[in-house]
Design a protein around this nucleic acid. Structure first.
Lengths: 294, 294
DNA sequence: AATTACATATTGTGATTATAAAATGCAATC
DNA sequence: GATTGCATTTTATAATCACAATATGTAATT
């Protein structure tokens, strides 16, 4: 009966924000600034901050707002006080994904069927279905019902995806409009170094996946062409679905992050063509290694 | 109060189907076949056929079904009996597009606002908004409301689109998986020849636009990679919005179709690399000519 | 054997209402 | 002058229901 709230999402956003900005204990968290950052009003931000106060991560002072209670670096452990928050936002999305990949959902399904199966309101179901449609693995039929596409679930489609990424990312780097973003490079360097120097053993699967995606999307963003960036973001959202089901071969990660750092080296040395060629090989290499496990 | 029906859409589909298959007077139109083609049940197909019977395009015989009454080539004139059918399917979509491009809609809008403005049911509004979201020029905000993006409406974004198309189409043609589809080439040849030999003066703007898009999408389809094809289809859907507002320079069309035919020539002669290079120039050339008019 | 015609079952839309969530204006506080 | 705290307005979701559109099973026809 209650409307789904965005504030849990905002809570997670704040934690991520605090971490990526490496904030320290005592730092102020202005409400309006957070609201603008996450494109919502102050209301849900306040709800989120109250929750974080209960979690012991921030401290609220009357008429002065909220302040960080611990350094961003230590937030991770503090977060574990609220464990069932789990991996992700929309449980329905993952239930549908699971059931589809497990073959429990036929290719064609009707909305009423899904409403009965998952016992959710139609509005919620449609919201999730539309999200999935935007990701491209389901589509509304002209009459009644929806139809799942085999995107990324078939071995062939999976490999096509790698070819697409390799081509797009390489070409993005070769565009005349490509400009290296020094600040972003610096951050990426820090993340990839941390990953290569031990993070590959301790980070969660989601964190590893995110670090990898962030790196590649950062590179494409340098092309200054939103169509290239959008297409990479779209396929990455899709990839998440499949990659989550694959057991990570963590022993491969140090090499991966080393290659990422190598790309940055080449770019900073002005050897863009080489960097682009190496990037292509880097992506296609990952395809060859992972594909058999699908 | 009445639910929106797909049968008008099916009516148009049948007309298009009959034309592209160059059917002749007296040919049978099996109901189930049409239903499968358009991915609906027999019910809306029957509704559409009844409408076409009233329009005098098909003839129904008891227990035998429906038969074409005129050759496909002459259908166009017959169709004019039902004139207000107009250009397109979803009026709401075009009203929103118009108002947005005319600056009548702010960047951020709420659903209720739009419901009041256009006086439609929420369900219908959301359907259209989600369609637009899939095309990429609006997105749902985390809290309330929707936000328009400047995709393709800004001059810069418009040019980025051309770069994206040129790169994707060229690279698609260079993929190892690329296989020329002889049958499709033949059809494309017929269309482009007709366009170049006079069609450029008489065809409607929508027909010209469709012929052009079909050609390029056909080429990308030969790459056998659905990600390349999807990304081109997506950007083309977007392009339609803008190109409709530009006055076509019909004098340029003969050259355009000549270039299309040249690409087919090169491919059939096995000179793929040349064809890909020419394709790239072909697309970027169109950008240079059209862009100033935006 | 394929196709139609018709009867029946199922689906999704539009309309309405109650309510939780989000947006916003403004005085109080730092 | 920026930010908070709170009161008020506005928004979107969930839950229902009636009904037209769509889907489908089956006997009749070719």
């Amino acid at each position: 009966m209650a409307r789904q709230s965005v504030s849990p999402q905002i809570t997670a956003n704040i934690l991520e924000f605090v971490k990526t900005n490496q904030m320290r204990a005592g730092d102020h968290l202005p409400c309006q600034m957070l609201a603008d950052t996450f494109r919502v009003s102050r209301a849900p931000v306040n709800t989120a901050l109250k929750k974080l106060e209960q979690m012991g991560i921030v401290r609220g002072e009357p008429n002065r707002g909220y302040f960080l209670k611990v350094d961003a670096a230590n937030v991770d452990t503090a977060k574990q006080e609220a464990p069932p928050q789990g991996e992700d936002e929309d449980p329905l999305y993952f239930r549908i994904a699971e059931d589809r990949l497990a073959g429990k959902l036929q290719e064609r399904v009707s909305e009423n069927e899904l409403i009965r199966l998952y016992d959710v309101a139609r509005t919620r179901l449609l919201k999730t279905l539309h999200r999935i449609a935007e990701e491209g693995w389901v589509e509304r039929l002209p009459g009644n019902g929806w139809s799942f596409r085999e995107t990324l679930t078939s071995r062939r489609s999976y490999e096509e995806g790698y070819v697409f990424r390799a081509v797009i990312e390489q070409q993005a780097m070769l565009l005349p409009s490509f400009v290296a973003d020094e600040a972003a490079f610096e951050k990426a360097r820090a993340v990839q170094t941390a990953l290569g120097e031990g993070g590959y053993e301790t980070w969660s699967r989601a964190e590893i996946f995110k670090a990898n995606n962030d790196f590649h999307e950062m590179l494409v963003a340098c092309s200054q062409n939103e169509f290239f960036l959008d297409s990479i973001k779209r396929i990455n959202r899709l990839r998440r679905l499949i990659e989550y089901r694959i057991t990570i071969d963590r022993s491969r990660l140090p090499r991966q992050s080393a290659e990422h750092l190598h790309i940055l080296d080449l770019l900073e040395a002005g050897r863009r063509t080489e960097a682009a060629a190496f990037l292509y090989t880097h992506i296609m290499g990952a395809s060859r290694i992972k594909a058999p496990q699908v």
